[in-house]
Design a binder for these strands. Structure first.
Length: 894
RNA sequence: GGGCGAAUAGCUCAGCUGGGAGAGCAUCGGCCUUACAAGCCGAGGGUCACAGGUUCGAGCCCUGUUUCGCCCACCA
């Protein structure tokens, strides 16, 4: 065997680098086996609950899911550690059209359509697909470390939820809040279904704008209207003009004779019409245009449907009946031309709505659909936000929310597809009675006929997801889960479904449960690429969470998402940052490895030492005070949903205080012969490391659990450890202030050393000139520590001294640092730097003096601010004086 | 057209109730110093988009402008 370089001596138990893949797999399996994610319902404890925004069962984990679920897991783990009854309900959404599409595509490979199978067999096929493939995204969530209560996983089509859907539908129907009526919908003539607005894609398309002459009914002239869809003129039932448009006032009584058909139609006056567009006259086709439909309602116009559901002209189209809509368009144009009605044709680019699944041009058309009257429900939701029962984070969404709720239209809940909750309504073939019931009726309650036909439409997928917060907890049964966990604590989701989903959950929760569905809503940003572009497969800028996890580890990836999750801002994810946080995880790993090397033989009894920090040496008191500050910061950030601060507070503390200063400082103690010094160091090291692991566990569950399990003593999972609490006994302002001085001195001496290019291993001689006797005492007390950190040889602390000319020089507070460096000074460089310093100081001084001599400032500014300015003035004057002295000395050398 | 948001170091971003401009990465210099070279020590770098205003004091508040992004309605 080839002798490879053995970098990792046997004395460490942990590998040199953190090997995340193995650790993640091992711990997740362990957590599942131990059921540590299971919700407990213990009386007397506060509850914390989250329902997952159910991903589509067809979904694969994308970056948005990754962010969304990381933030949820962060909160869930935090609250679980706080000892609360904590539940995170997972599940998936049956995603009507999307899922039906997937299965239809599968069928297509077998040269089959759903119609070949028939409704029942097709639905069986979909269930079979779900059994086989529906778990993909759930397994991916597990790789993210999500601590969902998997035993409670739900599906919007499962038995319980289907029951909830029926209950709600029947109740709303009986309350008169669900009705069936005509409405204009986006109709796909190929798929034969209504499409929701978000299922229609608007493509800018090159088309024509046809200007058509509509003669006055009395033959006295004509008005030109413009349209991109001339075939719809067959369904025109009015011409509309603006009420204040003086050009057309005389038409009020005349009317229009519709070309080609000769029908007489009225002129209506409506504010919707833009006077500036074209001639300011608009043809109105209420049955085939959304806006026209609204105009038609306002003016009580008939709706004349001229096409069937395949996009073919019907009998109402007269001689054009039987023509496809586009063939009809050609024919109409040519007829208009022939008969002299065509004014002109212009090239025109406009947005054409297309079916998102088959790209067929969508035909707005009227059809019988089921609706929810949302006005009364919406009012309840608005009230809940207004009076603060529901809080939106960030609060800026409130305005948008209100605006949307004010303009809300009735919700079309029927879809002409097969996969979904079939509408529980039956029509009696004998007497026409409509029966809406929870249980399937056998006979008509009106006439006794058994000839009943169930509605073929299914419900909009959002209908079932609107019930998600209570249906997943067992409603309509009265369950303990509902008692403990409803209303849920917080909903975390992306803002793009605020209206589709969040608002509807509010409406349903408030109406059906008579209670809000959640207290808080945290709306996170969309994740974009580092340049702010939307991620899309065609742009090729997609960051795949699973690839990131494989490359950098789940913890690093989660930490990155958390660090980016600042409120109210889009997230531009930069892959380099993930690598940066991977290094941070590795840093933590190595700090633990270092600790482990000393703690292996640690006596658990010594850990009690941290209970009384006053007896401890300075560095220990300092780090305990600092970790206490970090605990406070992290808790406050978590409680306020300031996720990026959770990350930065942890990062800053662990790397730059715990590792950079504390671990370096206590090395001397850990290797010391002094047993007391050693024990203190071990005790505090262990204690602080434990705090750090617990503090970071919610963000980085795997590495913290792995390290935790390796620490001395019998340990159960870190997941069930109490989350750190602020400990007043650890607060020590004095230790922090002294350490600040010492760290300043150390940094100052290091700078002098580096600038003079003294080799790091060479000892330097340092003179600390300090007029303050108390400070001199402090410096003397901690001189060995400081010396060790800067590798100083001799080290003298004096009240005053003559500074040699060729010496490095710095000022920290009122301590002057002097390092004699015969012949090592870069005089020119020093002079340059001193001049720069001098400039800055003078400018700053000028500003402060200006302030302090400003009468208004002195009378208006608070006491504390003035005092601070005075202090600053004194400090800057002192530094300026020293700078001038140094300049003087440098000049002598040059 | 309506609404919302953003503009801070080369890049990606923090900056909370107005009170001395910060981080990470990148750059430059030095270091294998007994956890970590995936590391350590140090340095440089900003007219806080622009123009006004309020204030003793503005990155932060107000008005306007420019640029960018998003949402809604999309004009027949």
């Amino acid at each position: 065997m080839k002798a490879t370089e053995q970098q990792s001596p046997e004395k460490y138990d942990l590998p040199k680098g953190y090997e995340f893949a193995e650790v993640e797999q091992r711990w997740y399996t362990h957590w599942l086996e131990e059921k540590t994610f299971s919700a407990r319902m213990i009386e007397g404890k506060p509850s914390f609950s989250i329902v997952i925004p159910p991903p589509n069962v067809t979904g694969v984990l994308h970056i948005g899911h990754a962010l969304n679920n990381t933030l949820q897991d962060l909160l869930v783990r935090y609250h679980r550690m706080k000892g609360e009854n904590t539940l995170w309900v997972p599940g998936t959404d049956h995603a009507g059209i999307a899922t039906q599409n997937v299965v239809e595509r599968q069928l297509a490979t077998e040269n089959l359509t759903r119609h070949d199978l028939g409704r029942e067999k097709f639905i069986e096929r979909v269930w079979a697909w779900r059994e086989e493939k529906g778990g993909t995204i759930i397994n991916q969530l597990k790789r993210m470390g999500a601590s969902c209560d998997w035993d409670r996983e739900r599906f919007t089509m499962d038995e319980g939820l289907s029951k909830a859907v029926r209950e709600v539908f029947v109740r709303l129907y009986k309350e008169g809040l669900i009705y069936k009526g005509d409405y204009i919908v986006n109709w796909c003539p190929r798929c034969h279904t209504a499409l929701a607005d978000d299922e229609v894609e608007h493509d800018p398309t090159d088309g024509k704008l046809y200007h058509i002459r509509y003669p006055y009914a009395d033959g006295s002239g004509y008005v030109v209207v413009a349209t991109t869809r001339p075939e719809t003129m067959l369904g025109d039932t009015a011409v509309a003009v603006h009420p204040d448009d003086e050009r057309y006032q005389h038409l009020k009584t005349i009317g229009i004779s519709l070309p080609l058909t000769g029908r007489t139609i009225p002129v209506v006056f409506d504010h919707h019409v833009q006077r500036e567009f074209g001639t300011g006259a608009l043809k109105v086709t209420p049955a085939h245009d959304r806006d026209d439909y609204e105009i038609g309602l306002r003016h009580d116009l008939p709706r004349l449907k001229v096409m069937d559901d395949k996009g073919v002209m019907n009998a109402e189209a007269g001689k054009y009946a039987g023509l496809d809509r586009f063939a009809c368009r050609k024919q109409i144009v040519s007829d208009l031309q022939e008969q002299g009605f065509l004014d002109k044709i212009e090239d025109y680019q406009h947005a054409v709505g297309k079916c998102y699944r088959c790209a067929t041009v969508v035909e707005p058309t009227t059809s019988k659909q089921w609706f929810v009257s949302v006005r009364p429900l919406a009012d309840k939701a608005v009230a809940a936000v207004q009076d603060g029962r529901i809080n939106l984070y960030p609060a800026t969404w409130q305005r948008t929310f209100y605006a949307w709720m004010e303009n809300i239209r009735d919700w079309c809940i029927s879809r002409q597809i097969w996969w979904g909750h079939r509408i529980p309504a039956w029509t009696c073939a004998a007497c026409g009675e409509v029966i809406v019931e929870v249980t399937d009726p056998d006979v008509c309650p009106a006439c006794g006929s058994a000839n009943l036909h169930q509605e073929t439409d299914v419900l909009d997928t959002w209908f079932s997801s609107a019930l998600w917060p209570f249906s997943t907890l067992g409603w309509p049964e009265k369950t303990r889960e509902l008692d403990f966990f409803y209303p849920t604590s917080v909903l975390i989701t992306s803002f793009d479904i605020l209206f589709f989903w969040v608002a509807r959950m509010m409406m349903m929760g408030l109406h059906i449960m008579d209670e809000i569905p959640f207290h808080d809503v945290y709306l996170h940003a969309l994740v974009r690429d580092k340049h702010g572009k939307k991620m899309s497969k065609s742009t090729g800028n997609v960051i795949d969470p699973l690839v990131m996890i494989g490359q950098y580890g789940t913890d690093a990836f989660r930490f990155t998402l958390t660090a980016f999750a600042a409120q109210g801002r889009e997230i531009r994810l930069d892959e380099e940052r993930i690598d940066g946080y991977r290094r941070f995880i590795n840093k933590l790993w190595n700090a633990a490895r270092f600790a482990q090397m000393h703690l292996k033989e640690a006596d658990p009894a010594i850990t009690a030492m941290t209970a009384n920090p006053k007896i401890l040496a300075l560095a220990h008191r300092w780090i305990l005070s600092r970790v206490n500050g970090a605990v406070k910061d992290v808790r406050a950030a978590l409680d306020g949903y300031n996720f990026n601060e959770v990350a930065s507070a942890s990062y800053q503390f662990v790397w730059h205080e715990f590792c950079d200063w504390y671990l370096e400082w206590i090395k001397a103690d850990l290797f010391s012969d002094d047993a007391v010094a050693r024990d203190q160091a071990k005790a505090v090291l262990l204690s602080v490391l434990e705090q750090v692991l617990k503090l970071m566990h919610p963000i980085t569950p795997f590495v913290t659990e792995e390290i935790w399990s390796q620490l001395p003593g019998e340990r159960s999972s870190i997941m069930v450890e109490p989350f750190p609490e602020a400990n007043a006994a650890w607060e020590d302002a004095e230790a922090e202030s002294v350490m600040n001085l010492l760290m300043g001195v150390i940094s100052g001496l290091r700078t002098i050393r580096t600038e003079a290019e003294v080799h790091p291993s060479a000892k330097i001689e340092a003179i600390l000139i300090c007029p303050d006797a108390a400070k001199r005492q402090i410096l003397a007390d901690y001189a060995p520590g400081v010396q060790a950190m800067v590798r100083a040889g001799s080290f003298s602390i004096v009240a005053s001294a003559t500074v040699p000319d060729d010496a490095g020089h710095a000022l920290v507070q009122d301590v002057e640092l002097v390092v004699p460096l015969k012949g090592l000074i870069d005089v020119a460089g020093e002079l340059e730097k001193l001049a720069r310093d001098q400039g800055k100081l003078e400018k700053e001084l000028e500003r402060i003096v200006g302030k302090l001599s400003n009468e208004k400032f002195m009378t208006n500014a608070p006491e504390a601010v003035v005092a601070k300015e005075r202090e600053k003035e004194a400090e800057i004057r002192a530094r300026l004086a020293k700078t001038l002295e140094s300049t003087e000395r440098m000049r002598k050398l040059s």
